[in-house]
């Protein structure tokens, strides 16, 4: 399956100098964005990133940064209307 979202928008960054090659990012990424090469993680294709933030949160040496969020139009609209960060309002009776 080759479902891909918009090109060149993901905020994912990897600092190779900090990376210890533990492979946690490879383990947690749901879209196979990372690969280990010569004992370091590399980003194979940042356009596959959905900014879930799992890699950055689980990186023990803070080598990864990403502006974590949910790619959800309802959340963006709620955030815009209430002047807050995007909030999907998941809870009670919502769809997600």
């Amino acid at each position: 399956m080759s479902l891909r979202y918009l090109k060149g928008v993901a905020t994912l960054k990897l600092d190779a100098a900090r990376c210890t090659g533990c492979g946690m990012c490879v383990n947690v990424c749901p879209h196979a964005v990372f690969r280990l090469e010569n004992r370091k993680a590399i980003i194979t294709d940042a356009d596959l990133c959905m900014e879930c933030g799992a890699c950055a949160l689980n990186c023990p040496v803070q080598a990864i940064t990403v502006k974590k969020g949910t790619g959800c139009a309802t959340a963006v609209r709620n955030g815009f209307l209430h002047g807050t960060e995007p909030d999907c309002g998941c809870g009670e009776d919502s769809g997600c």
Binding site: V9, C49, K67, A75, G95
Partner: peptide, 20 residues
């Protein structure tokens, strides 16, 4: 259709903001 981004498994916040 745009709302379906919330149910999809591959859309990013940056992307949704851009298209919105």
């Amino acid at each position: 259709g745009l709302e379906f981004t919330g149910s999809s498994t591959y859309t990013s916040l940056s992307g949704v903001k851009k298209e919105m």
